[in-house]
Structure formats: C-alpha cells, structure tokens
C-alpha cells in the first residue's frame, strides 16, 4: 500500500531523512519511533505530499505521488501533531469543508459527517464553534476529518501529542477501532507504550535513518533483546536453591541471575519461544518443583532504548 524507495529529505545543511526505503502493506499498522529530530515528521509530511523530498520515490496504492499527485492524495488521510482548524466554523461545517475537499458528493458528505461525529464522540458538539472546543476535542475533530473520506492510507503524526491522560485514552480507543479496518497506517509517537497496543510492526528512526524495522517479533529476534524470566518454586530449601542456581548459571541463555528469595529467581533470558520451552522442560526433568514460570517480553520502549543505546555508543 505504501512503498518508499531511497527517500532523502534535506534542509539546507541538515539531512532529515537519509535514503529511506520501506514497504507497508494493507492492514499493517506501522509505529514510527524515534527521538526528536530523527526524521519522523519529515517522512510523514513527504508521504502526505506536503514536503518535497530531495529525491526518492513514493508510491501510494501503486500510484506515484510525484507524478500523479492528486490521484495519490485521494488515498491518504493525514493528521499532524498540532490540529490546524478554522476557529470560526462549527464542528459539522469544518468536516463538511474537508469532505468537499476530498471530493465527496453532498449526500455522502452528510452521512459520513454524522458517522464520524458519532465515532469521535462529538455528537453533542455538532453545532459548537471550534474555538470553543478543548485541545482533545480538536484533535478528535481532526481525526474525524482525516478519516472522513475512508482513506486507504493513514498518516498520523503524534496524534495524541499535548493531550491529557483521559483525552489520550479516548484517542487511543478511537485509533484502536480504526486499526481494525484493514488500512495501512503509519503512526509516530513519543509515547512508546501507546504504540504497543495496536502496532503490529515498528520502525525505529535515528538521525534520519531507519535503524531497524519489522514486526515486533522480528525486531526482537534481530536485536536479540532480553526478556525478564521469573521462576518461583513450590518448595523452600537451601539444597533446591543451590541446585537451580547451578543449573541456570550453566545455561548460555541466562544472564544476570538473581535469587530474590529461596523460592523466587529473576534473570535475563535471551532466546526465542522454543528455547524458553526447552528450558522449562529441562527444569522439570531435573525434578525442580516449578510453581510459576513467567517470561516478560520487552516492549517497544525497551527495544527503543536498547537500540538507542547502541546507536549512541
């Protein structure tokens, strides 16, 4: 659905995006992660047709954005971090303006506006002037504007930026429902835990480059991220403790082993699910009475920091 080939964006002496190539398929929800100045917003703006890249090819649903701009833009819904609005328009009027911008006919405009006003929980505010809306409401309004023409591609640049926790939660719920609609979505955010909920793939950008991208599992495998393994025993004895510590310390998959109590052990585990099952199986074979065996997988934030640390070093 979205294909980027060798995208480069430069501002005078700064290179915002360095030869980025990426492909995002239908139904893929791609979280774009990176620190400030990593090139996330520039990438999204170039995809939305707002920023002219230095060079590179962008295909939206197979249509070249540079050559057939208007046709490609029909498939795109773009939402920036700060919602630009017409303060003196009413909520429904604002949506109507952009429904006509996306070439929807009058009948369709009316039904779509009603549908999206309801979905973003602004039904009560239908006839309210935008200048009277809170920041969260404005963001929801702009999200409704973005989705009004049922785009195949959604570009969301920090959609929850500057919102309070409850508004952020509302926004997340709406985005989760949209995520089920089989669109290709690119979403950038600073708040990494937010992306965990609905992204099925991520890309980590740093200094204009995509450091790593793919599904969460692929990335975990690529960067060999560590999971936190917790083992609890049903019996409490010093012999048992010595036995398990000896067994685990010999395993190459384990590091940073700590005995919290005689029955509880925590360690970093570096391996996939098969290796995890194998380890459990071995513990049972060694007649260790397992009460709880729990592997906590790293989230986007953990991966981000791990990769970030590597990049810095």
């Amino acid at each position: 659905m979205i294909k980027i080939n060798s995208l480069r964006i430069e501002y005078d002496e700064i290179t915002a995006v360095k030869d980025l190539s990426l492909e995002i398929k239908k139904g893929q929800i791609f979280g774009l992660v990176g620190p400030n100045g990593a090139g996330k917003t520039s990438t999204i703006k170039a995809l939305a047709g707002i920023l002219e890249p230095t060079y590179g090819e962008i295909l939206i649903d197979g249509v070249d954005l540079e050559l057939e701009t208007q046709r490609a833009l029909q498939s795109i819904g773009y939402m920036p971090d700060f919602a630009p609005v017409y303060e003196n328009l009413k909520v429904w009027e604002y949506l109507d303006v952009f429904a006509s911008a996306y070439l929807l006919n009058r009948e369709l405009r009316k039904s779509r506006i009603d549908e999206w006003i309801t979905r973003v929980n602004l039904r009560d505010k239908r006839d309210t002037y935008i200048k009277e809306l809170s920041r969260g409401m404005r963001q929801r309004l702009v999200l409704a504007k973005t989705l009004l023409h049922d785009p195949k591609v959604l570009l969301l640049d920090e959609p929850a930026s500057g919102l309070d926790p409850s508004a952020r939660r509302e926004m997340r719920e709406i985005l989760k429902s949209v995520a089920k609609e089989n669109k290709a979505i690119i979403i950038s955010s600073h708040i990494l835990t937010e992306l965990d909920d609905f992204c099925n793939s991520i890309g980590i950008m740093q200094k204009g480059m995509m450091v790593v991208s793919g599904s969460l599992e692929e990335i975990r495998a690529k960067v060999k991220t560590l999971g936190l393994l917790t083992i609890r025993l049903s019996e409490k004895s010093q012999d048992l403790a010595n036995k398990i510590l000896q067994f685990l310390s010999n395993s190459k998959l384990i590091s940073n082993l700590q005995g919290v109590t005689l029955t509880e052990y925590k360690m970093n585990f570096q391996g996939d699910e098969t290796q995890c099952t194998w380890l459990l199986d071995q513990l049972i074979k060694h007649e260790i009475p397992i009460y709880e065996f729990f592997l906590e997988r790293p989230n986007i934030e953990d991966i981000f920091f791990q990769i970030g640390a590597k990049e810095v070093s």
Partner: peptide, 14 residues
C-alpha cells in the same frame, strides 16, 4: 500562519 493550508495541499482538490 494557521497551517490549515497543509490540509488543502494534501487533499485531492485541484
């Protein structure tokens, strides 16, 4: 100044 023009710019209207 309000950047609403960006929304028009990325719309398919000629």
């Amino acid at each position: 100044s309000s950047k609403v023009i960006d929304f028009h710019r990325c719309s398919p209207t000629s």
